[in-house]
Nucleic acid binder design. Structure first.
Lengths: 330, 330
DNA sequence: CTGTTAGCGCTTTCAC
DNA sequence: GTGAAAGCGCTAACAG
């Protein structure tokens, strides 16, 4: 491996000049710059990132801490972030908190030790409840999860509004008994619960809710048990795409026909929701936009640490499909 | 931020002793060790990773370069790798080559500059064709893609065998005209094509293949056009989960009933393949095992650079479902 | 068992 | 416009 001193020697200049050229600084003659560039190419020189980082204290690495990389929602966000990072020649350290405050803590510590330029984070409920940007040595942008009280840059969906619209749609379709299966591990699930409650209250209806772990497996099990213990709801609603999948599995297993026997709807417009029978009404989230906005917010904050806090609220799109279309009983 | 010298001062020892304690080396008195540990805690000291890296030349960071993070197959592998890395207190730099040799090159260069301990890579066809471990300054383990000629550690599916079994299953179900939609960007797609060809040849049947980009969108479009231009096949087969989804979409759009009008099968046991109507016959890949094996192979190679090359070949599991169950025409 | 010291490769004053 | 030299924080000889 060639070092910067090798390049300097080869180009007949000092290491300082090489550093200036590589750093894109002005104050170097065209002749010297050209010789340096030629030497870099000739020696196939690549600066040692660790040395550069140590000396300059800066990094072009970002951290991304998501709750579960297998959740397509986070996958798509990660992808959008990665694209922007690549365009800016920055690296992304992707971490998986698994909704576990301890893992989350480990990764946040690690990112601090790595001296990352900034972090995009979908916080656990635990961390969010006492989140203060000042507790971190780097700028943080929250994604997916944020409360109105949190004083941090954030990109989130208007969960309450989206849930309300989804529920109102169901009420318009003559549903009276609507059971919500919602995750409890994240602020998102709780906000969607809140929207559900208020929409039902406005219509004078009684809420039926089932708090569960936000996984496909838990959702399937919960609905199966619910069907055994309670009268058949007019509709079931999932607070996330993972839960929605579990509900669909359970309905199938229970031999229930949708939309004849029961309606179903949920969050996240995952590809499979279009191809199952019936296709499923969902709130679609602009995942690519969310990811892109988050990293842009972060890069802006890195460039201007002092700027005022910004919170971007996205609107979910209600996509009405067959699963909520009442049919005449044949 | 506390430095190692602060810790040394606080504990009344030299920086060397602190370094020894932190590095878990022997040759430190219990008394000194305890004082150091207390000082570390008192000062909330965290070593600067860049400095450590620069000095020691070692890293506990691994690189993972996948073709597309949105593909659930790679997502699950990433997750498994991440879990093992976390257990070993190592970081993973996740990179997305997007099947683009240029991006792949960029990331591999970056990982070299980062001085990673090793890399897990699903190579583009371009790179695989001239892949030599010696070209890299770090150990590389290939996942998902490898040829018999490639002299590298690898974890792959027995693609030819899996494709053969899938096709033979279809032939057993009286299919004669079987159209394969396969990706061309990766070795995997081509190996599955090979298995398809040999299974058909063994049965004396004529192959019908459609080379496409390995995306849902391309697959949907290709099948729609295929249906327009050719007689209806007995079965269509997808060489990947992404393609399979596109085929299902197209069948739906074309108003074709499965398994009445046509059979369908493919690779990757994604969750949705169980809940669509009909549920779909697939070759399931042991993704968690693949990921885990890959990082274990890599860690073993890092520990023992000289050891002989190892290639782990996994067997796909044929899961027969309704989509390939011929029914009596009613 | 412990401390002193010399760098790892780079950026950045500070002179010239 | 350019170079010499001083470290960034840490680890690893090497002495003691």
């Amino acid at each position: 491996m060639a070092r910067i001193s090798d390049v300097a020697k080869h180009a007949g200049v000092s290491v300082a000049t090489v550093s200036r050229v590589l750093g894109g600084q002005s104050g170097v003659s065209d002749a010297a710059r050209e010789r340096v560039l030629a030497a870099v190419k000739a020696l196939d020189y690549h600066p040692d990132l660790a040395a550069r980082r140590l000396r300059s204290g800066k990094t072009d690495t970002l951290g991304l801490v998501v709750a579960d990389i297998r959740n397509p929602y986070f996958t798509e966000i990660s992808r959008a972030i990665e694209d922007v990072a690549y365009a800016n020649r920055m690296r992304v350290l992707l971490c998986n908190s698994d909704e576990d405050p301890e893992k989350e803590r480990f990764y946040l510590d690690m990112l601090r030790d790595e001296n990352v330029a900034g972090v995009i984070l979908s916080p656990t409920l635990d961390l969010l409840s006492r989140f203060r940007p000042a507790d971190f040595s780097f700028p943080v942008v929250l994604v997916d999860r944020c409360t109105p009280e949190t004083e941090a840059d954030a990109v989130v969906l208007d969960n309450i509004d989206a849930a309300q619209r989804l529920i109102r749609h169901l009420i318009d379709r003559d549903c009276r008994r609507i059971t919500l299966f919602h995750g409890t591990a994240s602020a998102t699930g709780l906000q969607r619960l809140e929207g559900y409650r208020s929409a039902l209250a406005a219509a004078g209806l009684t809420p039926f809710t089932q708090a569960i772990k936000s996984t496909t497996f838990a959702a399937r099990k919960a609905l199966l048990e619910h069907l055994r213990a309670h009268p058949l709801p007019d509709a079931v609603v999932a607070s996330s795409g993972l839960i929605l999948l579990g509900l669909v599995e359970a309905l199938r297993e229970a031999g229930l026909q949708c939309p004849r026997d029961i309606l179903i709807a949920g969050f996240d417009d995952q590809p499979w929701t279009r191809i199952v029978t019936p296709d499923i009404t969902v709130i679609a989230q602009p995942t690519a936009d969310i990811g892109r906005s988050a990293i842009e917010l972060l890069l802006a904050r890195v460039a201007q640490p002092g700027q005022a806090r910004r919170c971007i609220v996205m609107r979910g799109e209600l996509i009405v499909r067959t699963s909520t279309c009442r049919v005449q009983n044949t």
